[in-house]
Structures are given as C-alpha cells and as structure tokens.
Amino acid sequence: MLKGKTAIVTGGSRGIGKAIACRLASLGANIAVIYAGNTEAAESVCRSCTEAYDVEARAYRCDVSDFAAVKETVAQIKTDFGTVHILVNNAGITRDGLLAMMKEEDYDAVLDTNLKGAFNMIRHCAGLFIRNREGCIINITSVAGIMGNAGQCNYSASKAGLIGMTKSAARELAPKGIRCNAIAPGFIATDMTGNQADNPLLNAIPLGRMGETEDVAEAAAYLATAKYVTGEVLRVDGGIAM
C-alpha cells in the first residue's frame, strides 16, 4: 500500500517509534529513522525493516529541537531517498514534577523536544510535500494533552499544543493535498512508561489494561493510508479519555 513511499519516523529507535517504523515498512514504505542517542538501537530497527520487508531503511542522529540540525537532516534524507511522503513526529521526552516545584529547564526541555521538535520537522518537510502535491503528517500526542495529568504540566502542555498544531496544519496544508492527523495514546507499555502495575489510573481504563506499541502502530498505518481523513485526533487509550 505504501510501496515507493518514504516515511520519516522521529524517535524511531525504540518503543512506539520502532513499532510504527516496522509497521510502515511492512506496507512497503522506505524508512528514515531519526534518533537522539542510541545508534545501535536505531540501526537495529533499520536492519529489521530491510531484512523482514525488503525496503530501504537508514538511521539519522538528530536533535529534533534544533532547527538548523533538522534542516540539515531532512536535506540529507532527501538526498538519500529522493523525497519524503510521510512524517511521523514521535520523538518525545518527560521531565515530570509538581508544578509548584518544576525547574524552568525541565519545562523548556519538554516543550522544545515534544512541541518545537514537531514544528521543526513539519517546517522542513513541508516544502517536499508541497512539491509532491501530497504528504501525510502523523503527530504522536497523548491523552495527557486531552485530559491533563498531575505532575506533568510540561508534558501535558506540549501534547495539548501538538493537538492545536495538528489542526492548524491540517487546515493550512489541505489545499496542497497534505493531510495532518494526530494519535493520542493512553498508557502504552514502553521504556518511558516503565512498570505501571501499581498505578491506580489503570483502574480508570475501561478495557482494564495497558496498550501495546503495536496498537499505536496500527493507528499510524491507518492514518498513513486514509486519504480522506485530516485534522483528526485518534485516541488509542483503552477508553480512558472518553
């Protein structure tokens, strides 16, 4: 379904990003994995994609919060793959803490990576999408951006901002044939969420369990191929935010 297309997945070396990269590769897309630090993990994802699905996959180290670095990285991806058709903004960090005691640098770091990072990627990919007269942007937000979460004012603000950015970008870019949607995962079992077995919020999930990274990857696969869907925020949360 995506044969001949190229997809960028930020934060693609592990967790949700890894699952999305592999799922899009399974549909025939070539994959550009953007990662922050773990080269071995990123290259392992690329090998998994190439060996299992016979697509091209390459890893690129880049700090998505750095406007100039993103510009350079996107230019290199264009050189390597010819163009880009799909962008998945998945890179994200947490610096949790109570609002009254949160350090300014912790607030700034989360907004810079989670929100500005997505802007930087969209900004530098938009020209390629416009020239192609097609493009698909998928922003990985969170139910924390919909319902908030105590101890995560920075994270929740970044994810709520990403929802607003998604809707604005969808309206602005639709006349160019470019779609922009978001996925709002709930409690998904990843390295970032850690062991949540004793988290009382699990009792608030109607389906009664944490989600898997593959659940989010399936949503990404749908949005990558849903040609008449834009400006949507698709919750993958077991019902916790309904």
Results as ranks from 00 to 15, higher is better:
residue 71 K to I: 04
residue 120 N to E: 11
residue 106 D to P: 04
residue 223 L to I: 02
residue 142 S to T: 10
residue 143 V to T: 15
residue 121 M to S: 15
residue 132 N to L: 15
residue 127 G to V: 00
residue 14 R to D: 15
residue 105 E to V: 11
residue 14 R to L: 10
residue 231 G to I: 04
residue 217 A to D: 03
residue 185 P to G: 15
residue 22 C to Q: 11
residue 218 E to T: 00
residue 167 K to P: 02
residue 122 I to A: 11
residue 186 G to Q: 03
residue 238 G to K: 00
residue 212 E to N: 12
residue 144 A to Q: 12
residue 77 I to Y: 03
residue 178 I to V: 14
residue 47 R to H: 13
residue 230 T to N: 08
residue 61 R to M: 09
residue 223 L to N: 08
residue 9 V to I: 15
residue 160 A to W: 03
residue 98 L to Y: 07
residue 150 A to T: 14
residue 92 G to V: 10
residue 150 A to D: 02
residue 238 G to R: 01
residue 145 G to C: 06
residue 228 Y to A: 10
residue 215 D to T: 13
residue 133 R to M: 07
residue 223 L to W: 05
residue 195 N to R: 06
residue 186 G to D: 04
residue 59 A to Y: 08
residue 81 F to S: 05
residue 11 G to M: 02
residue 229 V to I: 10
residue 33 V to M: 04
residue 21 A to Y: 03
residue 120 N to D: 13
residue 180 C to F: 09
residue 238 G to C: 08
residue 174 A to K: 14
residue 87 L to Y: 02
residue 149 N to H: 11
residue 9 V to M: 06
residue 170 A to G: 07
residue 137 I to M: 14
residue 231 G to N: 05
residue 136 C to E: 09
residue 85 H to Q: 14
residue 28 G to V: 03
residue 48 S to G: 07
residue 41 A to M: 12
residue 190 T to P: 02
residue 42 A to I: 06
residue 123 R to H: 14
residue 33 V to W: 07
residue 177 G to I: 09
residue 71 K to C: 12
residue 186 G to W: 00
residue 41 A to H: 09
residue 158 S to K: 10
residue 182 A to K: 01
residue 7 A to E: 06
residue 103 K to W: 05
residue 188 I to F: 00
residue 131 R to Q: 14
residue 46 C to H: 13
residue 205 I to C: 05
residue 2 L to P: 08
residue 55 V to G: 07
residue 106 D to W: 11
residue 11 G to T: 08
residue 170 A to V: 04
residue 71 K to P: 04
residue 66 D to H: 12
residue 133 R to N: 13
residue 153 C to L: 09
residue 222 Y to I: 10
residue 184 A to P: 05
residue 180 C to W: 04
residue 175 P to Q: 07
residue 172 E to T: 11
residue 131 R to Y: 04
residue 41 A to C: 10
residue 158 S to P: 01
residue 221 A to W: 04
residue 132 N to I: 00
residue 192 M to E: 04
residue 210 M to Y: 10
residue 104 E to K: 13
residue 85 H to E: 12
residue 2 L to D: 01
residue 170 A to Q: 08
residue 143 V to S: 13
residue 145 G to N: 15
residue 103 K to G: 14
residue 116 K to Y: 14
residue 22 C to L: 15
residue 189 A to K: 01
residue 187 F to Y: 12
residue 18 K to V: 03
residue 159 K to G: 02
residue 159 K to F: 02
residue 185 P to S: 14
residue 220 A to M: 12
residue 29 A to M: 01
residue 92 G to W: 01
residue 215 D to A: 02
residue 204 A to W: 01
residue 83 T to A: 07
residue 12 G to Y: 03
residue 155 Y to R: 07
residue 104 E to P: 05
residue 64 V to G: 08
residue 123 R to V: 09
residue 219 A to Y: 01
residue 12 G to A: 12
residue 25 A to P: 04
residue 107 Y to F: 15
residue 193 T to G: 00
residue 78 K to P: 00
residue 88 V to L: 02
residue 57 A to K: 03
residue 202 L to A: 08
residue 172 E to V: 08
residue 50 T to L: 09
residue 123 R to T: 12
